[in-house]
Amino acid sequence: MRKRNMMRLLIACVSAATLAGCAALPGPACLPPSQPMLAAELAFGRNIGDRLGVSDAEFTRFTAEEITPRFPEGLTVVDGAGQWRDSERGAIVREKAKLVTLVFAEDPAKRAALSAIAEAYKQRFKQQAVMISVRPSCVSF
């Protein structure tokens, strides 16, 4: 009987240790000096209707007013060209774009800030969509 109880206790301890490891899975395995973070990319179309409508100056002002206050640690802006299907017209639209890359530690407030930035851009410049892509990344500065 005593041997059976010892065996049950041993099984319970092993099970508890195994399950505890499942509670918090590790992030990406980063080599030092890199740290696990999130990398977000936002793609902002610049057409309004069928013409370029968001100038470089307007995008710079948008960045200063909407993106920088939410991500003061820094960002990267790159000029691009893209295409997407306009859901209202069913047509392929090709347009100039601004790609913004942001890197941050996991934080629900930062994830919400990405959506707030996209909504502000759509309202200000009459856009249907802003692409947001977030992925785990190993980062060092």
Rank of each mutant, 00 (worst) to 15 (best):
T63M: 14
R4Y: 10
E65F: 03
G45W: 02
R111I: 04
A23V: 14
S140F: 08
I132N: 01
V78G: 00
P72I: 08
L31P: 00
F71P: 00
R111T: 06
S34R: 13
A91Y: 02
Q35V: 15
A57L: 10
P136S: 14
M1T: 10
A112I: 00
A120K: 08
S133A: 12
P72T: 05
D56C: 00
R94W: 03
A109Y: 01
F71A: 05
A16Y: 08
N47D: 15
R94I: 01
P108N: 07
P36S: 11
V139Q: 10
C13K: 03
R8K: 12
A29K: 13
M1G: 10
L10Y: 08
C138A: 10
M131I: 12
F44V: 10
A64M: 06
R4G: 01
M37Q: 07
A116I: 02
R135N: 01
F44I: 12
A109G: 03
R111Q: 12
K3H: 07
S133G: 02
E73L: 08
P69C: 07
A23H: 08
M7T: 09
K98C: 02
C138F: 03
C22R: 07
A29Q: 14
D50N: 14
R89A: 13
Q127M: 11
A43W: 10
Q83W: 10
D86G: 07
G82L: 05
R85N: 00
A112V: 00
S137L: 02
N47G: 02
P136N: 11
D107P: 01
E41S: 13
S55D: 04
L10C: 11
C13M: 14
P36K: 09
G45K: 00
C22A: 12
T18Q: 07
P33I: 08
S15M: 15
R94M: 05
I117T: 03
M1Y: 05
T18E: 05
A24T: 13
G82K: 08
A129E: 14
Q83L: 09
I11G: 03
